[in-house]
Simulated assay, not measured.
Amino acid sequence: MRRLISAQCALPRIRAEIEIPGGAPGWLGWLVATDAGGAVVGVAAGGVPVPGEGEVYALAVAPGSRRTGVGTALLAAATDRMRAYDAREQRVKLPVDGDPALPFYLHQGFTALADPARLSRPLP
C-alpha cells in the first residue's frame, strides 16, 4: 500500500487532477477499508474514463488483511460505482506480467487481453 500511495497520492499528481476544469475525466474517487480500530487495511480507486468501460486504477490490501474478503469487497464497491456510470466492461492493468495480484483478478472473472498484464471482464 505504501508503494501505491506514494505513486498515486503524490501531491503533484493530486494538484494536477484538482486543477483539471470539471475534474479528472471519469474519476470516481478512492474507496478505503478499515478494520474495527480504524486502521486502513485496503484501498481501491477507479473510474469510467471511456463510455461503457470501467477501469480499476488501484487496489491494494495490507498483507495482514489479505484473503479475508477485503479486496473482493473493495472491487465489488468500485464495480457498483462504475455500473452507476453505465460501465458494461471493467479493465485493470497490472504493474508487471505475472503480478502477484493476477490470481485474484482471474478468480474475479477477468481474462487477459493482448497484453498479458491488461485484464478485462464484462459487467452484467
Rank of each mutant, 00 (worst) to 15 (best):
K93A: 13
Y57G: 05
R118K: 10
V70D: 00
M1W: 12
D86R: 15
S120H: 13
G98F: 12
Y57D: 08
P103C: 15
A101I: 04
V50N: 06
V48D: 01
L119W: 02
R15M: 03
F110V: 07
R67E: 14
A77T: 05
C9D: 05
D86G: 14
A78W: 00
R66S: 10
Q90H: 12
E89K: 15
L94H: 11
A101W: 03
A87T: 14
P122M: 05
K93W: 13
G98V: 13
T72S: 15
V56L: 10
G22A: 13
A62H: 04
R15P: 00
M82A: 07
P51E: 09
G42W: 00
P100H: 05
L59Q: 02
A16V: 08
G26T: 12
T72M: 08
L31D: 00
L11M: 12
R88I: 11
P116T: 09
R2F: 12
G42T: 00
R15T: 06
G109D: 07
R67Q: 15
A58N: 11
A117L: 05
L31F: 01
V70P: 00
A36Q: 10
G38R: 03
V32T: 02
L4W: 02
P25C: 08
L28T: 05
A78I: 07
P95C: 13
A62Y: 01
V32G: 01
R3V: 10
G47Y: 02
A117I: 06
T34W: 00
I5K: 05
V96N: 13
C9E: 03
Q108E: 07
P116Q: 08
V96P: 09
G29I: 09
Q108G: 04
V92W: 04
Y85F: 14
D99P: 13
